[in-house]
Amino acid sequence: MNILVAGGTRFFGIPMIYRLIADGHAVTVATRGRTPDGFGDKIKRLCLDRNDEESVAAALDGRNFDVVIDKLAYSSNDVRRLLDHVKCGKYVLMSSAAVYEHTGICTSEDCFEPADYPLRWCERADCGYDEAKRQAECALVQAYSRHKYTIVRYPVVVGRNDYTGRLRFYVEKILAGEPMYIDDPDSRISLIDEAGAGEFMAYIAERDIGGAVNGCCCGDISPAEILGYIEERTGKKAMLTKKGEAAPYNGYPAFAVLDTSKAMTAGFVFCDVKEAVYRTIDSYLAEL
């Protein structure tokens, strides 16, 4: 298939594109051209600025793709600017589990219905990340439902190449003997590894999975278990105090666990969350 990827040169976009290439697809990557990639002549490249409609139009008007995978849509206007200027057989929107206002032990896709939520045309800067992602979904479902589409909702992604440094924070604090504040060490959370996140996006491109779909590792994990593994591997104790620097996973509900039965019914197998987290921690320890 002829596939356009908006974004994809960082983090879990990298295993996604390599999987698409390995599966024999013709891949075109559209970015601002600021981040080097290692794909060489295996892909084609387009340069555009998602915030500039003239730039998007110049790059995409008249082009037709079997699938568009949009990793860069953070608002309703982002969706509009792209889908007004490209033709495609299927559109895959990279969304987030942040769209769920209330999460529980088994949060399913119907816990947020973009068709029933008020649509507001906005930019990412107009609201918080969670609301901006809701509006991106609303734009797709309410204004562009003529397209076949899949909305992918991930929790926090972990991996060696995570530029946000969220999981790495815990490793560095313990190694340095620096205090940190964790609001609920026993909260149960879902995560997904970068390889699984990328490969599931590529998997969706080839399959008829409609509507929203959750993706995350099998099982759940707590901050206490993360700390325990680091302490075991390093022989150092975590310093926990309310005066310490706030930890990145603070703010999760007590049970923020996603239901992935829809993805698994479609045949995709996610790895175990503890395997993914502990493997990532080991990669950080090998570097530090």
Results as ranks from 00 to 15, higher is better:
74 Y>R: 07
108 S>F: 10
186 D>R: 04
220 D>N: 14
95 S>M: 04
52 D>H: 08
75 S>T: 08
182 I>Q: 04
256 A>N: 13
239 M>S: 13
213 V>R: 03
132 A>C: 11
262 K>F: 06
16 M>T: 01
165 G>F: 07
51 N>R: 15
131 E>M: 10
40 G>K: 09
10 R>L: 11
192 I>E: 03
45 R>K: 14
36 P>D: 05
246 A>D: 11
288 L>I: 14
79 V>P: 02
174 I>M: 06
19 R>D: 15
288 L>D: 15
93 L>Y: 00
274 K>G: 05
148 K>I: 11
218 C>G: 13
108 S>P: 01
126 D>N: 02
48 L>E: 11
64 N>I: 11
215 G>E: 03
141 V>I: 09
288 L>G: 15
255 F>R: 15
244 G>N: 10
230 I>F: 07
87 K>D: 12
152 V>W: 08
149 Y>G: 10
186 D>K: 09
139 A>G: 08
126 D>M: 08
181 Y>W: 13
69 I>K: 04
156 V>F: 13
274 K>Y: 03
267 G>M: 05
158 V>Y: 09
98 A>G: 08
148 K>W: 15
92 V>D: 05
119 L>Y: 15
160 R>E: 14
61 D>A: 14
262 K>G: 02
215 G>F: 09
212 A>H: 03
146 R>T: 12
92 V>P: 03
125 A>Y: 14
175 L>V: 12
80 R>Y: 11
219 G>H: 08
288 L>T: 14
271 C>N: 14
200 F>V: 10
179 P>K: 01
214 N>P: 04
215 G>A: 12
221 I>Q: 04
267 G>A: 08
157 V>N: 02
167 L>R: 08
233 R>I: 04
277 V>S: 10
90 K>L: 03
266 A>N: 01
273 V>F: 00
112 F>K: 02
14 I>Y: 08
147 H>T: 04
205 A>N: 01
10 R>M: 12
182 I>A: 03
182 I>G: 03
120 R>S: 11
171 V>K: 04
213 V>S: 03
77 N>R: 15
95 S>D: 00
113 E>R: 15
115 A>M: 04
153 R>I: 01
193 D>M: 04
46 L>D: 09
113 E>L: 14
204 I>E: 06
134 R>I: 03
40 G>M: 02
91 Y>K: 09
196 G>F: 05
187 S>H: 11
185 P>A: 00
282 D>G: 01
117 Y>H: 12
83 L>Q: 00
237 K>I: 04
183 D>F: 10
279 R>V: 01
280 T>Y: 07
97 A>Y: 05
168 R>Y: 12
98 A>V: 10
274 K>I: 02
236 K>Q: 13
134 R>W: 06
116 D>M: 13
207 R>G: 05
105 I>C: 14
201 M>T: 14
197 A>K: 00
116 D>H: 14
233 R>D: 11
166 R>D: 04
185 P>Q: 05
207 R>E: 03
78 D>H: 14
194 E>G: 12
39 F>Y: 14
116 D>C: 14
198 G>V: 00
17 I>A: 04
85 H>W: 08
244 G>T: 07
58 A>K: 13
124 R>M: 13
59 A>R: 08
